[in-house]
Design a protein around this nucleic acid. Sequence first.
RNA 1: GGUCGGAUGGCCGAGUGGCUAGGCAGAGGUCUGCAAAACCUUUUACAGCGGUUCGAAUCCGCUUCCGACCUCCA
Length: 488
Amino acid sequence: MKDSLVVYNTVNRIKEKFEPLNSPFVGMYVCGPTVYSDVHLGNCRTFVSFDLIFRYLLHLGYKVRYVRNITDAGHLEGDRDEGDDKFSKKARLEQVEPMEIVQKYTLGFHEVLTLFNTLPPSIEPTATGHISEQIEMVKEIIDNGFAYVVNGTVYFDVEKYSKENNYTLLTNRNLEDMLNNTRELGGQDEKRGRLDFALWIKAKPEHIMRWPSPWGVGFPGWHIECSAMSNKYLGAQFDIHGGGMDLAATHHTNEIAQSQACNHTNPAKYWMHTNMLTVNGVRMSKSAGNGFLPHELFTGSHPLLKKGYTPMSIRFFMLQAHYRSTLDFSNDALDAAEKGFKRLMNAMVLLKELHPSDRENDINIPELEDRCYTAMNDDFNSPVLIAELFEGVRIINGAYDEKVFLNSEQIDQLKTLMEQFVYEVLGLKDDILKMDEDFDKVMDIVVGLRNEAKENRDYVSSDKIRDSLQKIGIQLKDNKSTTLWLKN
RNA sequence: GGUCGGAUGGCCGAGUGGCUAGGCAGAGGUCUGCAAAACCUUUUACAGCGGUUCGAAUCCGCUUCCGACCUCCA
């Protein structure tokens, strides 16, 4: 199964066989958030996508080191490497220390990702914790002749770099056109070329986050942190580098340039990019102001929402689309996903109640399992996997209703299959049907009373209990011999 | 303007030369004391125009529309 995994590589724009540089070890670096504001749902989609990838690689038996950074310094407000960094600006706005901003939104980020049931990365390094590594890397790039210093700021020389390297590897853009683009360079630009970007930026007097360096007091540029930290924890070359598609053209392009200039290699064998979450067909983004905060979605407090959705319904909604497709966000789509998710979770409960039968049947669980692996091996195609799992749901429901018959071996196979893919690979869990031991016991009593009334043909009483439970979202499911209850 | 990617049924969303994706919604049925759930059956598709092919939603060309990146964003 491991041998047939293919992944889409942005570098060549095709799906390629996944062959780790040093199997069974896999190094994966994913660009994390800039923690100057709340994560919105679009950000979450990327991290849920890479969580799926992480989980599946683990499931296949790879020893994965998953590094995802926290950007807590150096990310500037505007373009052209000028202006405030995002943390200082927000700190001034909220009248706190920049690191209080960092702390607040880092905690928020972790809280949200925990709700989405993502596994924590193996290492989560911060930019501020790796200033010296970044300085070392900048020094090396200067020594190698690909950067220059102007008045305390260090710039990467894209034009020089592109003479020997393909700068537009990820985007396939025409460099000449980019260089000749006549857009205004703006006032007193220190850069030699308009594509040059800052590796280290001189701090203005009012700038709070600052560190000493060989070029004076300053702070690192945005792109260098990922190069320095991936290099430190995964080596000069590793297997997967990922992030949102919006990062490919600038951030990842510059990361490759930095690593080439420093280590003479593209840092990653496979570059993977996740697509955007859209609202009414337009990308969800902070600047567009169409961002949904996870919290607004859970509680339904956003004006565009009719109701709230549980984190797992939303995770399921995201996984029903392929990570490289845009996913459009709407009430109807979420409602549909929520219902489908409940159906899947109900089946997971029934799965535990199945009894083996000796009756002949032609149900082939191993074949279903093969189809599940085929789906995931095809560039982590979770929507197809989910479609296959609904075949499992049909089998489970049929078996529970005693219309389909499974022997004990088949039940075990089905349990393994469903639990591995639903819980382990897709990372779904039951946040709708919250079970609790005491509550279970109480429900047993209630259901017992209701069935007693039913047996005595006291339907007024039995229906009253059933309907009252229905109103608070507990559904009784009668079959021939027993009654099961499920929370909706 | 440049680069790249889209356009699939009422909605979401896979697929990508011949075989039902799937979920939600709709219709009919089975089961049930009645329900619910479940199960079975079923309706509505591949933007338009050409071309290649025995055969195209899938490949090629053109057209229209949409989006992303090119400026901070996952």
